[in-house]
Design a protein around this nucleic acid. Structure first.
Lengths: 199, 199
DNA sequence: ACCTGAACACCGTTCAAGT
DNA sequence: ACCTGAACACCGTTCAAGT
């Protein structure tokens, strides 16, 4: 058998394949289109097979959320730093909003009702990774005297919250998608002004 | 028949009763506990009866969302104005976050994936009602010279987005519930500073 | 007009059985 | 270890039929 792609029953890595398919389905059909049975069907496996890799549907959703936070962390980390802290903040803000609007179903799932405690550890690490770049940016800006003093994590949470809220409004149609870009820049400006040290 | 509570088959107002029961179920069991069949069972009617009042499940969710925006509008409108614009902003911010954290499943549903266009009209009115108080506050503060110039609706959206984001973080456990109160006050402070006219 | 009961095609979850 | 197939209790939606 010269074929390298050997599979036990049907798959080499069913878990990874299910996760990948799930994220695609999430993008195409939203969270309502996500079902273990359909996933199994799409991947060509019996409907009970996923149980071996995900204890129940919640475990699948948790795994998708963790993966989402990791991808968000990577997107933020890869956003190039600008000359000024302000410029970097603006770039990060656009990245965040872009990610959140391009992956609205995923982000909704990431911040959905409290995930099962079983996912807690990997989830916490992934969430921390996602906030690492904003926190580092605030810390750096504080050193340069461009942002007020205070716990950098709290300041970062406060700032990112504004972006998350905008993304929520865009996703639900409260804000028209066309005006989203302008609004994120305005919001970032208010944020920067609000965080600037006062004489 | 001296009993005034006459019912045709089983109910005087099945639609209202279903909606009320749905909101209770939403609070107790989250959106996953919400099913038309269970609702019908709880209310004592056949599983097909709700169809007369809600075309499908999405129509029920839309109706719940509209009702949620109306309740949010009322909560914001009833928040007493303070002496200063700053004080009023702080009070409104606390009301918003309190509403969003006490009704997390409802708020998640309100801002969920685009509602069906059929609900558009009533939905738009309800959303506008919810934002009316914040927009009026910004307009008033602008007149007093306490907030920078600009479209008051956009400024209000920007400000409320920060609160909505915080509520999302609290609801998903990214922010510990204990620190939520401090964080909303800090965020409000940054917001006020960011919106203050610059000399 | 409003509701019932049966029917259909889907679910998630569990479990004995196969390889 | 990993997957199958049947079984169970739930869904949403539709539709002829009853009052």
């Amino acid at each position: 058998m010269p074929i390298t792609r050997s599979r036990s029953y049907h798959h080499g890595d069913l878990r990874a394949e299910l996760l990948q398919r799930a994220e695609a389905t999430l993008r195409e059909s939203g969270v309502d289109g996500l079902s273990l049975r359909r996933l199994a069907r799409d991947v060509g496996v019996s409907h009970a097979a996923p149980t071996r890799h995900f204890k129940d549907k919640q475990a699948l959703l948790d795994a998708i959320a963790v993966s989402g936070f990791q991808r968000l962390a990577a997107a933020l980390a890869q956003t190039a730093a600008a000359d000024s802290a302000d410029g970097h903040i603006r770039a990060l803000a656009r990245t965040y909003l872009h990610f959140a609007t391009e992956n609205s179903a995923l982000v909704a799932l990431m911040f959905a009702r409290r995930h099962s405690p079983a996912a807690g550890d990997a989830m916490s690490r992934a969430v921390d990774a996602a906030f690492a770049t904003p926190v580092a940016l605030i810390t750096e800006a504080q050193k340069r005297g461009e942002v007020i003093d205070g716990d950098p994590r709290r300041i970062a949470l406060s700032a990112v919250a504004a972006l998350q809220g905008l993304a929520t409004f865009v996703g639900s149609g409260v804000i028209a998608a066309e005006t989203a870009d302008e609004l994120v820049d305005e919001t970032t400006t208010h944020m920067i002004e609000g965080l600037r040290p006062r004489p």
